[in-house]
Amino acid sequence: MSAETVLERILNRDEEPRDLPLALLQHITKHFCEENKIGQGGFGEVYKGELRNGIVVAVKRIDVNQITIDDVSFRREFNSLMNTNHQNVVRFLGFCSNTHHIPRKEAREINLVNVRERILCFEYIGNGSLDKHITDELRGLEWEPRYEIIAGICKGLLYLHEQKKIIHMDLKPPNILLDDHKVPKITDFGLSRSNDKSHTMGHRFGTAGYIAPEYEKDGKTSFKCDIYSLGVIITELATGCKTVPDKNN
């Protein structure tokens, strides 16, 4: 059975997510060419990959280093994704670990440096992320679709919290994708953690404006951190801005 057939079977839910060959991910993304690049975040770049049957998937490529993400963070995201199955959480298809060499000039010599990367494969959501819609369409978006988006985010978050005991820790509009029917899907679990292992963190990560005050100030993680971020998103969807407008305006 070819690697592409395996990925097709995963898409058809005949197989569980699994380790995917690097050659397959390179092939479907045209070797991660620039024209197939569809997004970039603090923890990696996302590319569109097309299978022979025309089905499109998303491939997230992450260099492992002190600036982007370490193996612990990768395993955290992988474990979170492997254990999720909900219509409001982006569907995970597989992963790949790879090490390659690049030339780097150091002093007067050119040395080969090992570069470790981790690659994740997801379902492709073609309607963009929520922040694009807030920016471009909010003025013309009726209340009912806004409500449905809010309800979908709440359902996805409730599933993560109550059934999977996962704290997302980076909930924001760029990490919520909308499908063609504007069904929201929570994505990007690079900062997620199990509530069972919740603790006070020394280094703070996240996006200003969406970070809960207790996490930003003291590094305390809990489900409440996600609820704070959710409140900011709801305010933004309802009013077009992150903070409540002046009541006199």
Rank of each mutant, 00 (worst) to 15 (best):
Q87N: 15
I67S: 09
R91Q: 08
A23R: 14
Q40M: 14
R91L: 08
C33E: 13
E106I: 15
N85S: 11
G42L: 05
N85H: 13
G44V: 07
I125S: 10
I62Q: 09
D63T: 13
I55G: 03
C121G: 05
N53G: 12
R108W: 06
D71Q: 14
N53R: 10
M82W: 03
F43L: 02
T99K: 11
I67P: 00
R52W: 03
I110K: 08
K105N: 11
I62V: 15
P17K: 06
Q66M: 14
T68A: 05
L51N: 08
Q26P: 01
F32S: 01
L20A: 08
V72F: 14
E109S: 06
N85W: 12
Q40A: 15
L24S: 06
Q40K: 15
V56T: 15
H31W: 05
P103S: 15
V46K: 00
R108C: 07
R18M: 10
Q66N: 15
C121M: 08
F95P: 01
D70G: 15
N79R: 07
E109Y: 02
E77V: 12
E123F: 06
I62C: 12
N36T: 03
G54H: 14
P17E: 09
V64G: 00
N65V: 07
S97Y: 11
L112T: 02
S97P: 01
V89W: 04
C96A: 13
H100S: 13
N65A: 04
F95N: 02
K48I: 09
D71W: 12
H31T: 10
G39L: 10
E34Q: 13
L22E: 10
E34M: 11
T84H: 05
V115A: 05
F32L: 04
I69H: 00
F32D: 03
V113S: 14
R18P: 01
L112K: 04
L51R: 07
Q26W: 08
N53E: 12
H100L: 10
I38G: 12
E117K: 00
I110A: 08
H31F: 11
R108G: 14
R52Y: 03
R61C: 01
I28G: 02
F43G: 00
N79V: 04
D63P: 06
G49D: 02
L51M: 11
N79M: 09
C121S: 14
R116K: 06
D70M: 09
F32P: 01
K37Q: 15
G49W: 01
L51I: 11
I55C: 13
P103N: 13
I125K: 10
V89K: 07
L93Q: 07
V64Y: 01
K37N: 14
G39S: 15
V59Q: 06
R118V: 02
F95G: 03
E45G: 01
G49R: 05
F95T: 03
L24Q: 08
V46N: 00
R18S: 13
D19P: 00
N83A: 07
I62F: 03
L81P: 06
I28D: 02
S97F: 04
C96K: 06
G49L: 08
L81R: 13
H27G: 09
C96F: 10
I102L: 13
E77P: 07
E34A: 12
P17A: 07
D63L: 13
D19C: 04
I62G: 02
R75K: 15
